[in-house]
Amino acid sequence: MHKEKRKILLSWFVVLLGSGGLIWMSLERWMGEEGEVFPSRVINIICPYSAGGGTDLFARSLARTAEAELDQTIMVQNITGGGGAVGFASGLIAPADGYTVTAVTFELVSLPIQGLVPFEPNDFDLLLRVNQDPGALAVRADTPLDSLEEFVAWARERGGVSIGNSGPGSVWHLAAALMADRLNIPVTFVPFNGSAPAITALVGGHVDAVVVGPGELLPQVEAGLVKILAVMSEERLSFVPDTPTFEELGYDVVFGTWRGLAVPRGVPEAAREKLTFAFREAMESEDFIEMARRGALNLSYADAARFRDDVQTQSADVEQLMERLGLK
């Protein structure tokens, strides 16, 4: 009997303590809303891709270094699905108070053009661009093709090459299409579910070539399994300094993906500036640069204005390409 009573008392205690905690938490939140200097609580970065991927690593490393600048915890949340669409959409509907930042990527441009999502790049206020990765054309190392010229000649002679890419309408599909157009070679596009399976198929000899990010190819290049023939950047890349660009070789192929940060429209100017400054500083920290070097992340800063211009130019290009590919 006595034991039973104690149990009931204990239960009451737990319930009261628990509900007290709830009330205290909500009171604190209501009190804390006004008159605070940004940032006064945890900042979230929405990463629209799954944990462990390139964009996730980029967001997490940046968050780690920017925490010191902002003197606040920064959490990365992976809200994935729809090739990034779900994450972008939840970044847009988040309150425009600067506490939710979205990691934006090339897909912000391509998804709306494909007609798959109900938003457009202009719904975001872009903060800064951190990285730009060009496309890279790679073939198996044991093929006798050593230059882009030989590749073009070989492709024309055979009447076609199969080129693997990371998915229908993905940045590397479009890059391959742009390249095929400018090089004037017949191509069979073979979409895979991401870059890694495409590279695997290349190594296994199931496709003739791939167009993917150079960082993703690095392990295989170093292992001597594949070779990169050319990259789609304006200048040569630091980690493959001997590989020419398409431009050097006389083809106007400059294309690639990028990563940056954005907030929904309507975030107060002061908060936006503070965030931009903090992430800009983080980008220049030694830790982050070292991380980027190891992950073969090609750093390329652009401020909000330049970032927006670039995105708009790219939008027009992508729209044309998609139309030609029948993806629109």
Binding site: G52, G53, L57, Q220, E222, A223, R294, A296
Partner: peptide, 13 residues
């Protein structure tokens, strides 16, 4: 990804 960030390149080498 973890290997690479710790400075190791997995592969035949």
């Amino acid at each position: 990804g973890a290997f690479i960030l710790h400075g190791i390149q997995p592969g035949p080498l």
